[in-house]
Write a protein that binds this DNA or RNA. Structure first.
Length: 269
DNA sequence: CCCCATGTTCGACA
DNA sequence: GTGTCGAACATGGG
């Protein structure tokens, strides 16, 4: 589920618990979600701490608690954050539950590809420093993208857009949406995108991410029919621009959808 | 039973 | 170092 827009939606789910103390923690120590942290440390340190802040960066989230306590959340493929009512008993795949006075803050992840991280100490944890520039920040520039495409010149652009080190938060559906809007074939070697095509790609990266967050983050709104999103998984789906058939193929290890009639190889080499 | 899944990592290999 | 590929992780849905 989660790419940057969905991640932002899930981050906000825990906002109701802001300023409130954690009374108790339920966690499943066997869950793979805790593969890089010590569950006993979490259970020992978190009770009594107050949730005071949160932020999202790409697909990652960081929740700050009083007493220099930090909890990182990555949702993987199926993770979600939700609120449970007071006194509710954990549901299936609720691997991490923070009990507050009036609610539970719940992390649920059926496939357990997500990850919970924990850090106690002044200042954000190491794994939160040195993150790449966020796509919607000023620092994320056309030059930064262009340089990266040159470094990965042989790889198909679809695979390159999925690299979190440069495009934090872009996942499979956003990448397809961006390339569709920029009219670039997903197979196109990254190094062949320059000039006006690069400008177009850069603009669409910013624009699609911005619009996706506006639509999805507040209330899980669905993108409109005019986006590729609603057509990409349909059998015999058609391109909303041309009315012609869409195609699917594995590129960069992921199922990719594109519109052959609309998305071209760049002409400016 | 089969295939697929909005993610990431790791090992093997060219 | 670069790039590609498949498998692995664990579970559910069609």
């Amino acid at each position: 589920m989660p790419e940057l827009a969905e991640v932002e939606f899930f981050r906000r789910q825990w906002n109701v618990g802001m300023g409130q103390k954690v009374l108790k923690v339920h966690l499943n120590p066997k869950s793979r979600n805790f593969r890089r942290c010590h569950t006993d440390e979490i259970a020992r340190c978190l009770p009594g701490a107050k949730l005071v802040d949160s932020e999202a960066h790409g697909k990652q989230m960081l929740f700050r608690f009083s007493g220099d306590i930090w909890v990182g959340v990555h949702l993987g493929m199926t993770g979600e954050l939700k609120i449970g009512p007071n006194g509710a008993s954990p549901e299936k795949h609720d691997h991490f539950v923070l009990v507050q006075t009036n609610r539970h803050l719940v992390f649920n992840d059926s496939r357990q590809f997500g990850e919970i991280r924990f850090h106690c100490g002044a200042g954000p944890p190491d794994w939160w420093r040195d993150l790449p520039p966020a796509i919607l920040s000023e620092a994320f520039s056309r030059k930064l993208v262009g340089d990266f495409l040159i470094r990965r010149k042989k790889s198909p652009i679809k695979a390159v857009l999925l690299m979190q080190e440069r495009f934090p938060g872009i996942g499979n559906w956003l990448a397809d949406e961006i390339l569709w809007r920029a009219q670039i074939r997903p197979h196109c070697p990254a190094g062949r995108i320059s000039g006006i095509k690069l400008t177009r790609l850069f603009t669409e990266i910013k624009s699609v991410c911005h619009q996706a967050i506006e639509m999805i983050a507040p209330d899980w709104g669905e993108p409109p029919d005019s986006w590729l999103f609603l057509h990409r998984w349909k059998d015999n789906g058609v391109c909303p621009k041309t009315g012609k058939p869409l195609q699917r193929e594995t590129i960069g290890g992921r199922t990719t959808c594109w519109s052959p009639a609309w998305q071209k190889w760049p002409k400016d080499l």
